[in-house]
């Protein structure tokens, strides 16, 4: 691994981020990344956060038209409430703050505590949970569906609404609509390595893949012998379409888990488009790249979001962040 010691991995990355992005204020000690020009009078601030190891999520999405601040936790560990309270105070203009929270037990508990503390400090907070991963059955007997690729859609689209000056309840409603219209399915071709463990976090023999994997390497639905890109696309898209029947063109995210080359991701994207065409699902926009990663895991995920005209317009709106930039 390209590190010094496991204990300083997150702090080291934040120092590097500060060096690369003078347009962001990176508080290494308190672990908060904030737009240097925040807050904006009359505008809602979007704040997200989660365990590190999913870069560019979330810090790479801080900037114009997306997040106002991000709170990175330890690797695969949710941030602590103090970070979110600090971020909320830094970006609140009086118009309120929307927390974007991926549905994992730790993130939910810490953000819930942060909501209480920030409201005590007089900041108006709304919260939206992202839970798009169809590999997990949403039932009383699990922690519910996990938040994965749709987080990017929620942060981009709700961020654009906030940038336009929409009030908090409107930004929150849009964020909820994006989440409700999005579904994802992920596949791992290899396990990931956390710095603390120094070895693979789960055992996936070469020549096998994990279908329905989570972004922390959580096992999914089943393990099979290696499949071709074409077969994986069929499986992943059909898994998503079992749960989402788009009646309008979709936004498509073909996401890499961290160690899969773009050459392979683009090849996979061709297969995803082929199967979507076969299923008569028109694609409005496509994004291909490593956006919601799982350290050095090889693999990919497919996220579809059924987009109406408003969501599409907000998706196309200018964005200027370290990892996502267009229209400006």
């Amino acid at each position: 691994m390209l590190i010094n010691v496991a204990e300083t991995v997150v702090a080291d990355a934040l120092r590097g981020m500060a060096a690369a992005h003078p347009e962001l204020t990176v508080d290494v000690e308190n672990r908060v990344i904030v737009r240097r020009d925040a807050p904006f009078a009359g505008k809602v601030g979007l704040v997200s956060g989660g365990g590190s190891g999913h870069e560019p999520l979330h810090g790479g999405f801080v900037g114009r038209g997306m997040l106002a601040a991000a709170c990175p936790g330890e690797v695969f560990t949710s941030p602590v409430p103090d970070q979110m309270v600090r971020a909320a105070a830094a970006v609140d203009s009086g118009a309120g703050v929307l927390f974007v929270v991926k549905n994992y037990t730790g993130d939910v508990l810490n953000f819930d505590m942060a909501v209480e503390l920030a409201e005590d400090e007089g900041v108006q907070i709304a919260k939206v949970l992202v839970d798009d991963d169809v590999a997990v059955t949403d039932s009383l007997y699990t922690a519910g569906r996990r938040g994965t690729g749709a987080t990017l859609f929620v942060e981009k689209i709700a961020g654009a609404a906030a940038e336009e000056g929409a009030p908090l309840e409107r930004v929150e409603a849009i964020a909820r609509r994006v989440n409700a219209s999005s579904r994802s399915f992920g596949v791992a071709l290899s396990a990931c390595t956390t710095p603390a463990k120094g070895g693979p976090t789960f055992d996936l023999p070469p020549g096998e893949l994990e279908l329905g994997v989570g972004i922390h390497g959580e096992p999914g639905r089943e393990r099979r012998a290696m499949m071709t890109s074409r077969e994986i696309a069929d499986f992943a898209v059909d898994a998503v379409l079992e749960d989402l029947e788009p009646t309008s063109p979709v936004l498509l995210l073909v996401n890499g888990m961290g160690a899969t080359p773009l050459l392979e991701l683009y090849g996979f994207n061709a297969e995803v488009h082929r199967v979507l065409a076969e299923r008569r699902v028109p694609v409005a926009r496509t994004l291909v790249g490593n956006y919601v990663t799982s350290l050095d895991m090889a693999g990919c995920s497919v996220t579809l979001c059924q987009a109406d005209e408003e969501l599409l317009r907000l998706w196309d709106a200018p964005v200027n962040t370290p990892a996502l930039r267009w229209g400006c």
Binding site: G51, G73, E74, T77, S78, P79, V80, P81, D82, Y104, T105, G106, L109, N110, D112, M113
Partner: peptide, 12 residues
């Protein structure tokens, strides 16, 4: 613990 651990175990 709440201020330093994170994850689910910090709040719990």
């Amino acid at each position: 613990l709440i201020s330093t651990v994170g994850g689910a175990s910090g709040p719990l």
